[in-house]
Write a protein that binds this DNA or RNA. Structure first.
Length: 188
DNA sequence: ACCGCGATGCACT
DNA sequence: GTGCATCGCGGTG
């Protein structure tokens, strides 16, 4: 299990790269995190940027909790709250390398290809069964489980995906060469 | 490979 | 009414 202070008092810019390689499970189903994006208070692309609302309230609460929101009316997306209480910072989990509960993930996604099960923030929430019910739950107790990495993967960075503001920031972190990311980096 | 579009909820102007 | 921290499908090179 991850130490409780993994998220406490550490900015999302420290935590986001440290999440690459950590295993995320929900009721024992999940995989290794291979893609994360950072969102902080000063960031115009962040839900927390304009102050607290009913939707983003969890971002303003204590770190170490899940912030789950609905995207485009259809999908759910999972963030892990970082930093300190009152300051909205969170890491958006964008992709996993599936390692546990593959059959259940395939059933929930209606797909067989392992590379397609969790290669996107909406996809992984469907595969792991994450919905509004998980919004605000602590990450160190069931149904969540975060398992510390035993090796530090090589990490690469790039611009974030699917946003219209602050697109110049390279706040996307990926496990180098992983075939399980949502999409590749723009070529140099 | 890329591009366009529809589905659908909700925060905000 | 508009715009998304999206996805999957169907069209075109």
């Amino acid at each position: 299990m991850l130490k409780r202070d993994f998220f406490f008092g550490r900015s999302v810019h420290e935590v986001a790269p440290d999440l690459i390689g950590v295993t995320l499970l929900v009721n024992g189903v999940g995989g290794r995190i291979v893609e994360v994006e950072a969102y902080d208070q000063e960031d115009p692309a962040s839900h927390g940027h304009r102050g607290p609302t009913a939707r983003n309230a969890v971002m303003f609460g204590p770190p170490g909790h899940a912030y789950v929101y609905r995207s485009y009316g259809i999908h759910w997306c999972l963030n892990l709250v970082c930093g300190e209480e009152g300051v909205p910072e969170a890491a958006l989990i964008r992709a996993l390398e599936p390692t546990s509960g593959l059959d259940l993930q395939r059933r929930r996604r209606g797909l067989d290809d392992v590379r397609a099960l969790c290669s996107g923030p909406g996809k992984l929430c469907q595969a792991l069964g994450i919905t509004r019910e998980h919004d605000g739950l602590a990450l160190d107790v069931p149904p969540f489980e975060l398992v510390e990495r035993d090796e530090v993967p090589e990490i690469v960075t790039g611009p974030r995906i699917g946003i219209t503001r602050a697109t110049e920031l390279s706040w996307r972190y990926l496990s180098a060469g992983s075939p399980y990311v949502s999409r590749g980096l723009p070529r140099a």
